[in-house]
């Protein structure tokens, strides 16, 4: 049995331990915001946070998350400044990649309160948007960065279960 914390809740799974985390999140815990795109870690639609780092869930065996903290798009709870910026800049078209884009961008803002254009591109260039809403993704990241003077920490249950946004 593998135990981990999913969006602040302690959970466990008995699936074969080589199962990619993606299918556990989607099909066992029914959190459908994390998407299946390429299955080889190259589109970023399945990006989640494991202990705060961006990880491609489609290739990440569930056995490696034992005792770790996982955050998915649902775990941002509609409270992350990126989500507001995504609406303000009207980023999504089909929207399928956007959970992954937001989760990837969130880890940038967690360590860099004011990323440059170059830093944004470097951090985001492994996330494919097939509708090619790239200009707006860039703009929304800047908008979110400008909305706060601090880095944006992401939900970290280790901090007494408190959320810091």
């Amino acid at each position: 049995m593998i135990e981990f914390i999913l969006n602040g809740k302690k959970v466990s799974t008995k699936v074969p331990d080589d199962t990619p985390l993606l299918w556990v999140i989607r099909d066992e815990f029914h959190l459908k915001g994390t998407k299946f795109g390429c299955g080889i870690s190259m589109c970023g639609a399945c990006t989640v946070h494991i202990d705060g780092d961006p990880v491609r869930a489609c290739k990440y065996p569930v056995k490696l998350v034992n005792k770790k903290q996982i955050t998915t798009i649902e775990g941002l709870n509609n409270e992350h400044p990126l989500q507001e910026a995504w609406i303000k800049e009207q980023v999504p078209q089909c929207g399928y990649c956007q959970s992954g884009q937001i989760m990837q961008a969130a880890t940038l803002l967690a360590s860099n309160k004011d990323p440059s254009e170059k830093e944004i591109v470097a951090h985001m260039s492994n996330n494919l948007c097939r509708c090619m809403a790239y200009s707006r993704i860039k703009k929304a990241i800047k908008t979110a960065a400008n909305s706060t003077s601090e880095t944006v920490s992401i939900f970290d249950p280790a901090l007494n279960g408190q959320k810091e946004i």
């Binding site: 998407k35 941002l76 929207g95």
Partner: peptide
């Protein structure tokens, strides 16, 4: 349609 596409609630066929 955009808000639901920023929080994982937009429902696709998959």
């Amino acid at each position: 349609d955009i808000p639901s596409k920023t929080n994982g609630t937009a429902k696709y066929g998959i």
